[in-house]
Simulated scan of single mutants.
Amino acid sequence: MENKRIVLIDETLREGMQYRGLVFSVEQRLKILDFQEKLKVDICQAGYPPAHESEADIVKTLCHHAGKKEYNIRIAAMGRATIKDAALLLKTGVNDLHFHLHIKNNVSQNRLDQILSDLLKTIEFVKQHRPDAVISIAMLDIGKSNDQILNQGVSFLSDHHIDILSLPDTSGMMAPNQVFEKIHSLCHEAKDTKISIHCHNDMGMAAANSVMGILAGGRCLELSALGIGERNGIGDLYTTAKILQNQDFHINLNTDDMTTFHAYYSYVDAIVYEQTHEHVLNFNSPFFGDAVKTHVAGTHAGGEYGIATEETFFLNILCGRHLVKKYLDLKGIFYNETKLEEITSQIKTQSIALGRRLKNDEVKAIAASLI
């Protein structure tokens, strides 16, 4: 099972503040951290201390809160891969330090060697001041970076025993097969270093790409509540993790605790709505929205997914006898069961004539006319 054990990093607090300029208060971050702990998230990426001294103070507060409450969740902070930022991250008290590094494709070999040499100084600085620190380096971005640069960077970091190497599809333009091929290739270079998957949703592929990155050999996964993040966001916490759990990957996240999950998502959605006047948790949200239990074709009316309290049926030209019966029973409409075929036929005919689905009173009238 070891090679199927996935470390889950919830980036709602850090990446989430890049979603349309959201700003989480201290109280909101503490509440979100409490949700993450209850749901058994492995790592909370709590913020970006180099942005401002207040950000550093908030990360320190979250770290203290987790320690005081004896939480199992680990608190991480992110910054640039420099000694200056490393010093700021260490002052917050976090033991998980996440750095990002962007190397341009036109970089010369000499310049690349210098960048990696400077990076090594940062790594050594952290290990000197915090020997047990867990270090993650994000190399941006695998969808656009030169393969040779990526291979050299991954090999270099693996040789220096970096704990986690994050390989994000920052631009969000990759297809699932491309992510699989890229990550599978780079995993051979990574050796004992864990590869972390971070996929953006610009083309709507974040969840699929995240799953394929894990199938290709990734062992860490970066997600957020409702997928909020820069531009169109990143992979959604619940749905992505659940899909992998269903394929026997070992993820601590308690996806069975639907009460807490729905409360977490509703809480984040309320913050989003307050600041943007638009919801991200809506009718069409996967699993948590009501749309997953709405049916027109009877063959689909299984009601297997989602948290909606009851199934909803819409009757138009595509409905069948089975779905009509379900609708009539659900609505408590009295009907002659021997007339189901005729009821269904009349519903279809009226739907064609009106050019829309039928309303409840119209269906009721058809059933009553055939008693």
Results as ranks from 00 to 15, higher is better:
212 M>L: 09
213 G>Q: 05
214 I>C: 08
214 I>A: 09
214 I>K: 04
216 A>P: 12
216 A>T: 14
217 G>M: 08
217 G>H: 04
217 G>I: 04
218 G>W: 01
218 G>C: 01
219 R>P: 00
219 R>E: 04
220 C>Y: 05
221 L>C: 03
221 L>D: 00
222 E>M: 10
223 L>C: 03
224 S>M: 10
224 S>C: 08
224 S>H: 05
225 A>S: 15
225 A>Y: 08
226 L>A: 07
227 G>W: 01
227 G>P: 00
228 I>L: 05
229 G>E: 11
229 G>I: 14
229 G>A: 14
230 E>V: 15
231 R>M: 13
231 R>N: 13
231 R>G: 09
231 R>F: 15
232 N>S: 13
232 N>Q: 13
233 G>Q: 11
233 G>P: 09
233 G>S: 13
233 G>L: 12
233 G>E: 07
234 I>T: 12
235 G>T: 09
235 G>H: 02
236 D>S: 05
236 D>Y: 02
236 D>H: 05
236 D>R: 01
236 D>N: 06
237 L>H: 02
237 L>F: 03
237 L>M: 07
238 Y>E: 00
238 Y>A: 01
239 T>P: 03
239 T>I: 09
239 T>W: 04
240 T>W: 04
240 T>R: 00
240 T>P: 03
241 A>W: 03
242 K>Y: 04
242 K>T: 04
243 I>D: 01
244 L>W: 04
244 L>V: 06
245 Q>H: 14
246 N>Q: 14
246 N>G: 10
246 N>H: 12
247 Q>M: 03
247 Q>P: 01
247 Q>T: 01
248 D>L: 15
249 F>H: 03
250 H>C: 05
250 H>I: 09
251 I>E: 01
251 I>K: 00
252 N>S: 09
252 N>I: 07
252 N>Y: 08
252 N>V: 13
253 L>Y: 07
253 L>S: 02
253 L>M: 08
253 L>T: 04
253 L>H: 01
254 N>G: 10
254 N>M: 13
254 N>E: 09
255 T>D: 12
255 T>G: 11
256 D>T: 08
256 D>E: 11
256 D>H: 15
256 D>N: 09
256 D>R: 07
257 D>E: 11
258 M>T: 09
258 M>Q: 07
259 T>N: 10
259 T>L: 15
260 T>M: 14
260 T>Y: 08
261 F>Y: 09
262 H>A: 03
262 H>T: 07
262 H>C: 06
262 H>L: 11
263 A>T: 07
263 A>F: 12
263 A>M: 07
263 A>C: 11
263 A>D: 06
